[in-house]
């Protein structure tokens, strides 16, 4: 079955509805609006979830690691050994290992180049300290201890990076929330406009239904159910497009994983959460159409 044929069947009104809702443009426009809104909402949601997830991963990694730097000095090796003994004896420390000089050279090479310049530089000692997950660690106390016992030593707990990551995640979530609000407002306005247009198109029949004693809510329900159904059909399309795009991005991200770039990832739960805009969108379309219809119907005799 071809897609246009399938779409025509899905958007066909229920047989025997009180109103001939097939005879208006909403049958095409409402699914199109719903498709666009669902597509953007899914992407916004995915952005927020991925950013939060990435920030959590970074936070976790950074909060479980510290770096102790000992400035170059004549007795650097002795001070390094003392620092290692001191650090390994602290509560909450899993490991404390100095970075090999070769690793230090590799870190500097992109800026200074290979060769004699680096060889001639007095390099500090960097000690990579890994903390036990969940254990308490008194960063400020250790800072004071190091300053007292090993002059020239500096503790870096990556706070600056962690703050930046938190701020970036917050910003991404705020952007996603702003997108959601904008899309929601536009979609609600479109549904209200479409419902009012449909009421105008079917005004003659609505008047007859009123004359027969139909309640406003009975007539409004017709519009609500149809709007919800059309929104669900359009939402399915938008969801399919969004999932297609996200799957392509996920595949692209997997290729990038070999690089040093951290890749945002969606967990299985996140993929399920990204489905939420479909039923929520259909429900909102129905409620919005019902309220818009009631507002117009109450002004009729």
């Amino acid at each position: 079955m071809s897609e246009p044929r399938l779409l025509a069947i899905l958007t066909r009104p229920w047989p025997g509805g009180l109103l001939a809702l097939a005879n208006d443009d909403a049958r095409v426009h409402l699914p199109a609006i719903a498709a666009a809104a669902t597509f953007l909402t899914c992407l916004a949601l995915a952005l927020a979830l991925a950013a939060t997830s990435l920030a959590d991963r970074w936070q976790g990694a950074l909060s479980e690691a510290l770096t102790v730097e000992i400035a170059p000095r004549p007795d650097l090796d002795a001070m390094t050994a003392k620092a290692l003994i001191l650090l390994r004896g602290l509560d909450g420390v899993a490991t404390a290992e100095p970075l090999p000089r070769a690793r230090l050279r590799a870190l500097l090479a992109p800026w200074l180049g290979e060769g004699a310049i680096i060889d001639g530089l007095p390099l500090p000692t960097l000690i990579d300290v890994r903390l036990i997950r969940g254990a308490k660690f008194d960063t400020e106390g250790v800072e004071r201890l190091l300053a007292r016992e090993i002059p020239g030593a500096r503790l870096d707990d990556h706070r600056m990076w962690r703050d930046s990551v938190t701020a970036a995640a917050w910003l991404a979530t705020a952007v996603a929330a702003a997108m959601l609000v904008a899309v929601l407002a536009a979609a609600i306005s479109a549904v209200v406009f479409a419902t009012r247009a449909r009421l105008a198109v079917h005004r003659d029949h609505i008047e007859i239904l009123h004359v027969m004693g139909a309640l406003d809510r009975t007539i409004a329900r017709e519009f609500a159910v149809d709007a919800a159904r059309l929104a669900a059909v359009g939402g399915l399309l938008g969801l399919a497009l969004a999932f297609g795009l996200m799957a392509a991005l996920a595949a692209f991200a997997t290729q990038l994983e070999t690089s040093a770039l951290p890749i945002p990832r969606l967990s299985p739960l996140h993929w399920i959460l990204v489905l939420v805009p479909l039923p929520v969108g259909a429900f909102l379309a129905g409620v919005t159409a019902a309220l818009a219809a009631i507002g117009v119907l109450r002004r009729m005799p």
Binding site: H210, V211, M212, G213, A214, L215, R298
Partner: peptide, 14 residues
């Protein structure tokens, strides 16, 4: 009211 009017209308055939 509107509900009462609907009730009245149901007693009328047109």
């Amino acid at each position: 009211g509107r509900e009462a009017l609907a009730g009245l209308r149901r007693r009328i055939g047109v």
